[in-house]
Design a protein around this nucleic acid. Sequence first.
DNA 1: CGTATAGTCAACCAATAAGTTCACTATTAT
DNA 2: ATAATAGTGAACTTATTGGTTGACTATACG
Lengths: 107, 107
Amino acid sequence: MTDLNQTFAALSDTTRRAIVARLAEGEAPLAEVAAPFQMSLTAVSKHVRVLSDAGLISVTKRGRTRYCRIEATPMREAVDWLNDYQRFWDQQLDALGAFLQDENEDD
Amino acid sequence: MTDLNQTFAALSDTTRRAIVARLAEGEAPLAEVAAPFQMSLTAVSKHVRVLSDAGLISVTKRGRTRYCRIEATPMREAVDWLNDYQRFWDQQLDALGAFLQDENEDD
DNA sequence: CGTATAGTCAACCAATAAGTTCACTATTAT
DNA sequence: ATAATAGTGAACTTATTGGTTGACTATACG
């Protein structure tokens, strides 16, 4: 299906995560997506390309405008991968909690 | 805290995700972590370094052996970031479900 | 028509990443 | 003391990434 390498790589850049965050609030034209950033439109366009290649967003052309919107599946799969370790880190955090608990028992 | 860029970047490599998966089954010496891979020990050592720099694992030296074990926090934070979009993609998947439902209504 | 708008494409640059090999250090075993 | 084991460090290669600029295409507007 979608490639976890690509998904995680796409998310490993602050700008791209910000784009995803923006698009979570609704579809937007590229120009609007690019507005908050200092870099050139070309640079943002490339970021959008990376996200779209990873399947995290889709881009549809209407007139001369490209509208970007977020897509569900790859993030879903990333979470699925990470969740395989959820029991593990719950346990580790519980252990930390217990430790802190013990430490404070002589108050 | 931990750096999401680094966390996602560390997870964007198949070898490194395999290492994490291996370590989820318990602490292991580097040599054992490296065993399944065709690449050199040095290469695996570098991957381990990347994971450890990202805080995803920790490495402790006992004798001449380095034991690697998984650490909870950064993956936790990655999941937290992704989960901000969970409502979003649930909705998208629900919409897909509804669509497929509708499609089959004339059976 | 001509011009502004939205964006891509190609070429380039500097930095980083993933791998290699070879030499080296540190620890354990004989 | 010597030799095997576990791993690091440095130097190098090749590919990819994130950014730039400048020229170009496609659509909309007057």
